[in-house]
């Protein structure tokens, strides 16, 4: 069966520096795969490669079984992308931002659906008609998450998605991710939050200096053991 997301011996260079070196993984439908790594490990670059922003210097990157290089537009239309600290337009309200970005994606959504999505991310009702420049970082992130939900794409790419969220919102977000995966959405998230990754992911991959150096999977319906991953993560980072 074709994996929605697959990296085959993926190597990436950015400005002459090797960012990824022969990384391979696949994310199955309905699976949450978390790439865990420190700063400069190549996590965000991996996401950008799936979106066609970075061309592989080696290997191949596939979305729904098709090489991204062959049809970037098709890859992007299948993916909702939540960048780290997504900066939506500060001079527009949450509704206007959603309207703009969904229109940009070629998607028509009813206003009631906007509210459903904003309810799911717990953005206060009174804030929705305010300009985003008055929002906290967490509220802006919630709006961006709502946008990703409304895209209703089969694949979600999340770059440090809980950045800026308070602990309660983080827990709510984790529940949301599990719900989405349960509904069949394929999710690749990159993070340096070991706890969060273990809470939400079916599998965790450890990325270090451009190489996948470890992998942990949830078994028997239990979550991945945070202590184990943390120990491996700390060991790898200090190695």
């Amino acid at each position: 069966m074709t994996s929605p997301l697959e990296a085959r011996s993926l190597s990436l260079n950015r400005e002459g520096n090797a960012v990824l070196n022969g990384v391979s993984f696949a994310v199955a439908e309905g699976e949450v795969f978390a790439l865990l790594g420190g700063n400069g490990a190549g996590k965000s670059s991996t996401l950008l490669a799936f979106l066609g922003f970075l061309e592989p210097s080696g290997g191949e990157i596939l979305v729904n079984g098709k090489s991204v290089a062959d049809d970037i537009a098709a890859a992007r239309s299948a993916i909702a992308y939540l960048p780290e600290a997504a900066a939506l337009y500060g001079h527009m309200t949450a509704y206007e931002n959603l309207n703009y970005f969904l229109d940009l994606a070629g998607k028509s959504v009813k206003k009631a659906d906007y509210d459903d999505a904003l309810n799911r991310v717990a953005l206060p009702i009174e804030a929705r008609s305010r300009r985003l420049q008055s929002y906290s970082k967490g509220m802006r992130q919630k709006t961006a998450i709502a946008l990703a939900l409304l895209r209703e794409t089969p694949i979600l790419l999340l770059d440090e998605p809980t950045s800026g969220l308070d602990p309660v919102a983080i827990d709510e977000f984790h529940d949301l991710v599990k719900d989405l995966a349960g509904a069949g959405q394929t999710i690749l998230m990159v993070t340096h939050d070991v706890y969060g990754a273990c809470q939400v992911a079916d599998r965790v991959g450890l990325l270090r200096r451009g190489q996948l150096v470890g992998s942990f999977a949830a078994e028997n319906g239990e979550r991945i053991d945070t202590e184990t991953v943390h120990a491996a993560f700390a060991e790898r980072e200090t190695a």
Binding site: L51, F53, A86, A87, Y89, F101
Partner: peptide, 18 residues
């Protein structure tokens, strides 16, 4: 500068539409 470029392009699919 606003770190919105990639999100916009990823959402639009192609730069021509944006």
């Amino acid at each position: 500068t606003a770190r919105r470029h990639d999100l916009l392009l990823a959402t639009a699919g192609s730069s021509k539409r944006l």
